[in-house]
Each structure stands twice: as structure tokens, then as C-alpha cells.
Amino acid sequence: MSITYLEAIREAQAHALRDDPRVFIYGQDVGAFGGAFKATKNLAKEYPGRVLDAPISEDAIVGLAVGAAIEGMRPIIEMQFADFSTVGFNQIVNQAATLFWRTQVSCPITVRLPFGGTSGSGPFHSQSLEAIYAHYPGLVVLTPATVEDAYSMLLAAVAIDDPVVFCEHKLLYYHLKADKLPSEALPIGKARIAREGRDLTIVTYSAMLYEAIDAAKELATEGWEIEVVDLRSVKPLDTDTIVASVARTGRLLCVGEAWPWGGVTAEVIARVTAEGYGLLDAPPQRLNAKDTPVPYHPNLWAAHRPTARSVAAAARNLLRQ
């Protein structure tokens, strides 16, 4: 038996609905249709009255979740695409994210964002918005890269008493498979060493993990041992694991699919530079998508985002320094 990243997300939601009567799912087309990506397939039938279609109203969808959370529920919101969460942005960053700090009433909502580029999806179905949510105090931002993490971290997200922005990468939905669902997991906020090495650290997350690992494999044929850190959670950010890795390798390359300006890669470099400057043998580098909207055509899209090839090239440059 094998299970995909998407099925793991569905199973985590089924598990949450089964175990916790406070959980309900609300979003566009999530009911009988089972969601645009089928992440809620059959759940409306299995849990009648708890998996509900919403009107195309992202602001009101998130606002309703906040109200339900105040009333003690644990809503899971599906944004059809992360890109559309900007319509509900105000409720996420100003309502949900400020509630606990202002009132001491916690706001346990999970907002699922199917995010990231896939070939042919274009400017409005491809965005990576983790950095913009991480910018706001009061939010937890998770970016699982594996089937196991997709499952365990979504379950953890529902259990967390704070608003969680759960960034699930669409490119991983169908192709990423595991043999079975995990029975245990690293805690939220802990990064994972996805591949050990001693010459250079690549810090990355979500789908870019696989570009980084492929780059590391390519560089291994040239004699380099590249360590790859999978952040898992961008907020909180596991600075300790990153700095410990840089202490071993002396070189840091951060890779993110999001836009460069003020992003997760910039944050990682700022922290390593501040906390581990003396550990660095070369200036830290980063590689992001280009600073334009995400293009539609596959030729342009493949050049817009970091790939194993461009990651390997950036790593080689850094290794030469």
C-alpha cells in the first residue's frame, strides 16, 4: 500500500473529524464535491453536517472560523488556492492573529493553503505566501515537505491553540508517496536534517526540498557532501538546528520557491549572520524565484523557480569561495 501527500492531508482531516467533535471543515467546494483537489473526498458523507461548502467569500470564511473558534470549535478552512487567501487576508492577520494577544482568548483555526507553482498554472494559482503570513505576529506557519509531515503536522495544526497557516504544496499532492502514515513525528518547530553533509548547508522547505536533494546528489558525484535542512515550520523557525548545521559545514545556501524580497530565506540568513557569523567560511547565499509574478508557460515557469540545476550551480559558486 502507498499513500500520497494529498491522501495524507485527507486522512489527517478524517482523523481530526473522527476524534474531535469540535472540528469542522468549511471552504469552497469542500462538501459533496470533495474539494478542488479532492482533499476532502467523501468527508461530507462520512461526517454529515461537519464538512460544508462556503460561498466564494474568503473574508467571511475566515471570519466565520474565528467566531467558531471563540465559541470553542476547531475549524479547518480550505482556501481553494493560497493565492485567494489574500481576499481573506484581513481576517487572518488582523482578526485571527491579534485575538489572543488582545483578549487572552485563543484562536485555534487551521487555514489550509494549497500553494506553490505547478506547470501551466500562471500568476494566480501558483503563489507561495508563507513569508507574508510569517511576517505577522500571532500566526504559526507550517510547510510540510513529506507525506508523513503532511499528515502529522496537519493533525498538530488542528490541536494547536493558535491560528495556523498550513502551506501544502500542490506539486507534491499526487507524486509524493509513502508506504504508510506515521505513528510519531518531530514536534512542531523542529527542523529536520534531510540529508547529512559536511561541505555546505542548504536550508529549504516544502517542494524545494526535492530540488535541494537532487542538487546534493548531483554534487555528490563531484565529491561534495551537502547537508540539507528541511525547516518543516517557517514560524516558529528552528534557528538552533540551522546554526548547528552551519557550524558543521561553514557554508549556507537558503533556497525558497517564494519571492526573494523579505522572505524566509532572508530571515534565515539574517539569523545565521547575527548568531553564527564566526561559523561562516563564505558569505551566505540564497536562491529564490525571480521577482516577477509566476509565469504561465512551462518554459518560463521552469526558469522562474529554483531547480536542482540552479541550486547546484549556486552551491558550486559558494563552494568555490
Binding site: 453536517g49 475566515v62 471563540i70 484581513n90
Partner: peptide
């Protein structure tokens, strides 16, 4: 409910409380 400054933003929050009470 303590209002945020963004007008109209509290309506859906009230909807959510009423919705949750119905679910419960």
C-alpha cells in the same frame, strides 16, 4: 466582541459564533 478597525469585519465573526452554536 472587541472590534477591529476594519469595517464590516466583525459580522462574519458573529456569524461564526452563531454557526458554532448551531453545530453544538
Amino acid at each position: 466582541l472587541p472590534m477591529i478597525s476594519h469595517l464590516g469585519a466583525m459580522i462574519s465573526v458573529v456569524n461564526g459564533i452563531l454557526f458554532a452554536r448551531r453545530l453544538k
